[in-house]
Design a protein around this nucleic acid. Sequence first.
DNA 1: GGCATATAGTTAGTTATGCAACTAAATCAA
DNA 2: TTGATTTAGTTGCATAACTAACTATATGCC
Lengths: 146, 146
Amino acid sequence: MPNNHFRRGELYSVINGMASTAVARRLQKNFRQAGLEITIEQWSVLYHLWKEDCLSQQELCNRTFRDKPSITRLIDNLEKQSLVKRMPSKTDRRINLVCLTDPAKNLQQLTIDLANQTMSEALIGVKKEDIDIVKDVFQRVYDNLT
Amino acid sequence: MPNNHFRRGELYSVINGMASTAVARRLQKNFRQAGLEITIEQWSVLYHLWKEDCLSQQELCNRTFRDKPSITRLIDNLEKQSLVKRMPSKTDRRINLVCLTDPAKNLQQLTIDLANQTMSEALIGVKKEDIDIVKDVFQRVYDNLT
DNA sequence: GGCATATAGTTAGTTATGCAACTAAATCAA
DNA sequence: TTGATTTAGTTGCATAACTAACTATATGCC
């Protein structure tokens, strides 16, 4: 039983260490080699805006699983690079709608190709069913804890 | 096919966002509620030292999947809290062996119990076989990229 | 022995994260 | 309508991450 218990801590350690470094690092590297100055965190925000433009910061928090200060600062940095603009909502003056600029729209295809390529490299030898299981497990974990 | 491709980027987004925040945040919170002042990153270093004490910083890099500057500063902070000590190796003067102090040894049982409890909460409704699949997938991903 | 190369660790600079405390606007209720 | 509560976003502070450049020691080759 102590052995069984210990393995859960280990699982945490493995998931946290591997997932959040190896893939992220490779993707970041591929971005840089392609001459792109964006971080993967910034990219994850753009990713959701490409799916649906002009989201509120709160909505970006929900979709990227980040807290509000993190999003505030990611948007700050994206705005400095002229990739997004904060547009005050007309119906609720508390809300900033975060909208893509034209340069950001042009990044979509290239960066998504790079992400696909990176994930393909990462997933060599992994069965499609297992990928679905990983997604289900993380969804369940997220639901359990929030 | 474009749709299929898009889903891999999404997978990255899901794994990175969910795994590295929800579980980590909960575990950190449980540590703090128990009056422990350590971060989960610091804990992950201690975790490997409890399994094998007096590892070199390079060995801690390998086992925690972190780079050298990250480990340098984690050890700096752990040393400030008197949880580890850097001991120069007698056979190779480049090497610091990182060794646990007595206070750190006393933290082992409590923090591992908290980690187990957190992972149990996180994994409610997840089948044991699926947990093993997740571990295998992440091992494979890590091997593919390093 | 002596020089090139590899390895262990540190430092500096930028970005990101979490938490707590804050402002401003909207909503709800008496 | 006014006063309390909720929601959206920002700011300050501490820790952690990556990269690149650095020092110091060890190893390998001639």
